[in-house]
Write a protein that binds this DNA or RNA. Structure first.
Length: 411
DNA sequence: TGTCCACTGGAACGTACGGCTT
DNA sequence: AAGCCGTACGTTCCAGTGGACA
């Protein structure tokens, strides 16, 4: 029965009723031929990088703006053209793109840079200094200019300091080594405060700011992509308007707008409807949020789950704004129930911050005068979703109907 | 106006682990 | 095999703090 349905699904997908004729165009990493409302940034980046085509090192560039404002797309776009041109005029230019959030550490950023100059390094085991030396060697033997894009560089600096950036900016001062042009991309506008002044002045020789898209600009972007990806009459104009409006309220995030449109199309396809309307955008909005939450919850380690579950239990007992101390008491009790050693309060305090960053809870630092300072914490996700997801865990399933003794003391 | 609470959050350090060089 | 490295995750220590309360 199921197998028969499956075959029907595939048949349906393959028939001409499919809504999307080109899905790639709606993917967040797709770089289109035309980037609406970013002419100014493209030109600035182009002019700044142009000297590279004469083998002259150009200014380092610091690009910043909120997520989904086109920073990465514009950079890819311009670099793509630059590399094609350099091939045409036979000037050795290489480009290397590193996402510091995904790559994570100085060592691994350097290892990616080594890749770009054809130096193989082991993924662990070497001293960072050693990897850096090998990178410089590779750069020298390559001879040309390497344009290194460090996307989400703020994350790297936040967790590992600006040491690597400092060393990279210094490479060009050493005469006999090839040249590096750095393009640092940051989502965080306050990122500059974290940098050593020397690094800052070197990195931001040129600065390009990406303002959030307005709803109208997002609409233009969506319209262009929709024409390229949907079949004829596959979408309602009002659906695009809604995607644009929803994304505009979230700091003008084009990625968000495209995600909404793609998810809406996929839901419509699954329901065998041949036009995307506002209704499907709303459905997509709910689905994206649900997917995000379950992905986050499923990836939490045991202790973080126990902390979150403690917050959930406090919520269920109508303690809407639980304090760190309360959470720790309940958490310790739960640890006893599942026979694991509780972590220290300091660590749990850190875990609460991490849950806050993940958007699963809202934590606010409050001062209660005589009663000290603490964090007021409440769930940021639907309690039923939390209990469903966490209850699926082998360790926690036995705790679904558990009432902590601590609650009897405080309620 | 000073005290004092219940933490926060930075920093240093420990441990386990996988994996490199010599 | 020894020695070293980066990474992840945790502990311990402790100075700092906002504001209610005496």
């Amino acid at each position: 029965m199921v197998q028969h349905e499956l075959s029907e699904i595939f048949d349906h997908f393959l028939r001409d009723s499919s809504l999307l004729m080109n899905r790639e165009v709606l993917r967040p990493d797709y770089v289109p031929e035309n980037l609406p409302h970013r002419d100014e940034q493209i030109q600035r980046l182009g002019w700044t990088l142009a000297p590279v085509l004469q083998s002259v090192r150009c200014s380092n560039i610091f690009v910043y703006g909120k997520p989904g404002t086109g920073k990465t797309a514009v950079t890819h776009f311009v670099l793509g053209h630059l590399i094609r041109k350099s091939d045409e005029v036979h000037v050795p230019v290489k480009a290397c793109y590193v996402n510091c959030r995904l790559v994570g550490t100085d060592y691994r950023v350097l290892s990616s840079l080594c890749d770009a100059v054809h130096i193989r390094v082991p993924f662990t085991g070497l001293a960072t200094g050693e990897v850096f030396d090998r990178f410089k060697q590779g750069l020298t033997s390559h001879g040309g200019i390497l344009v290194a894009v460090l996307d989400e560089v703020d994350i790297l600096v936040k967790y590992h300091g600006d040491n690597l950036l400092y060393e990279l900016t210094r490479i060009n001062e050493t005469s006999n080594v090839g040249k590096v042009v750095l393009i640092g991309i940051s989502n965080d506008l306050n990122f500059k405060d974290l940098l050593d002044p020397r690094v800052l002045s070197s990195l931001s020789e040129e600065e390009i700011v990406f303002k959030p898209y307005t709803a109208d600009e997002l609409y233009d972007i969506l319209l262009e992509r929709a024409h390229a990806s949907f079949v004829k009459n596959g979408f309602h104009d009002s659906a695009l308007r809604l995607c644009a409006a929803l994304a505009a309220t979230e700091h003008g995030d084009a990625r968000r707008a495209l995600d909404l449109l793609r998810a809406a199309a996929e839901i419509a396809e699954r329901e065998r409807v041949n036009i995307v309307t506002e209704e499907y955008v709303r459905k997509a909005q709910r689905k994206i949020e649900q997917d995000r939450v379950s992905e986050v919850l499923n990836s939490l380690p045991l202790h973080q789950r126990l902390v979150l579950y403690s917050i959930f239990l406090l919520h269920r007992a109508n303690v809407n704004n639980s304090l760190t101390g309360d959470i720790y008491e309940v958490y310790s009790e739960l640890c006893g129930e599942v026979s694991v050693e509780p972590l220290t309060q300091r660590r749990v305090s850190g875990l609460i911050n991490e849950l806050d960053t993940l958007g699963v809870i809202n934590a606010k630092l409050v001062s209660l005068g005589r009663h000290g300072r603490s964090k007021k914490v409440r769930l940021a996700i639907t309690p039923s979703v939390a209990s469903n997801q966490l209850g699926g865990d082998i360790h926690l399933s036995s705790l679904l109907n558990y009432t902590p003794n601590y609650l009897q003391k405080i309620v």
